[in-house]
Each structure stands twice: as structure tokens, then as C-alpha cells.
Amino acid sequence: MDTSSAIQEPFDLIRLSLSERVFVKLRGDRELTGVLHAYDGHMNLILSDVEETILIVEQAEDAAENTVNMAKRKMDMLFVRGDGVILVSPPAR
């Protein structure tokens, strides 16, 4: 594990992920993965090579048959407003 004294607060952890691929969970049932290029104290982010996953609900006649599907979208360079961000993390291995 990293023993550098530079890690003092949560934002230092994000700083380590600069120019790395990160996973971002957003409000409104959305998730992103992208390469992190910038962030600020509001958790505003700038990511490149982004893939967005939106969860979509499909209702069936029978409530037990309701399914949750995913819709994906790709974007080259994206600014994400911080008030929608729930978490930022390295991608799941």
C-alpha cells in the first residue's frame, strides 16, 4: 500500500488517479468509466474516452418479470458537474 505522507485526505486519493481510468457513480442511476484529467473541490470532473452506462427499467405485465437493462454511450471528452457525483474509484478489477 502507499505509505507516502502525501495522502492526507480523500482528494489526495483522487489525485493519484489522474491520467488513469476511473469508475464514477452518478446520481440518476448512471455510471461512467473514463480517463481522469481534471477535478476540483466540487468534484467537477473532466474525463476522456468515456463510456456511460444508464440503467433502464422495462416493465412487464407481470410485476415479477420487470427487468433492469443497461444502455451504453461513448463520449470523447466530458465535463461532469460535481453535484451529480456519488463516488470516484479505480475501475473494478
Binding site: L26, R27, D29, L55, T67, V68, G84
Partner: peptide, 11 residues
């Protein structure tokens, strides 16, 4: 289905 909390929504 996914355990998503009934949050207030974005913003």
C-alpha cells in the same frame, strides 16, 4: 432488483 436507494434525485 438492484438495491438502489430511493434517493431524492440529482441536484
Amino acid at each position: 432488483k438492484r438495491g438502489f436507494c430511493k434517493e431524492g434525485g440529482e441536484g
